[in-house]
Amino acid sequence: MQEFFVLFIGAMFVNNIVLAQYLGNCPFIGTSKESGVAVGMGGAVVFVAVMAAAITWLVQRHVLVPFELGYLQTLVFILVIASLVQFVEMFLKKMVPPLYKSLGIFLPLITTNCAVMGIALICQREEFGLMKTVMFAFASGLGFMIALVLLAGIRERLAVRRLPIAMRGTPIGLVMAGLMSLAFFAFKGMI
């Protein structure tokens, strides 16, 4: 139990997927202008990351390893993720329209979100079991969401401040992300 707790906190704060591992930066900077959008994107990432990590784990264990196709990992993983995203989108549209309304527009973005594929790859490299993989993916997704929502809050306030014109938009967003990353650095001592 304790092991899982350490893994959870570690993935969420200490090795935060965006602020310490540099994954998923495009959506992190791109969708952090409004907190509503940030929550939607974060939710979509948590949802897809967990499913993608579990499915790629199964594919790796039951298809790639037995047939000695390990070198095709990259190709297979991205195709699995792309079709999964497509499938989830269709499923939500038909079966759960309210959820589709809030997450749907973010789903096409997620195929090219390296956080999702990154999480799946990290789980393989660390050789986690299925339970641990799901746990890790969930915690990392939550970590992404926390960082995204926090940055969106900061940028909403920055939008009404007077800034040098060259700093507005992306540059100040990146500097703010750097300061947040510095703050998350403090968690390093925890584990």
Partner: peptide, 10 residues
């Protein structure tokens, strides 16, 4: 990591 974000931003 923090230096990466800040230097790219600057």
């Amino acid at each position: 990591a923090p230096g990466a974000f800040v230097s790219l931003g600057v």
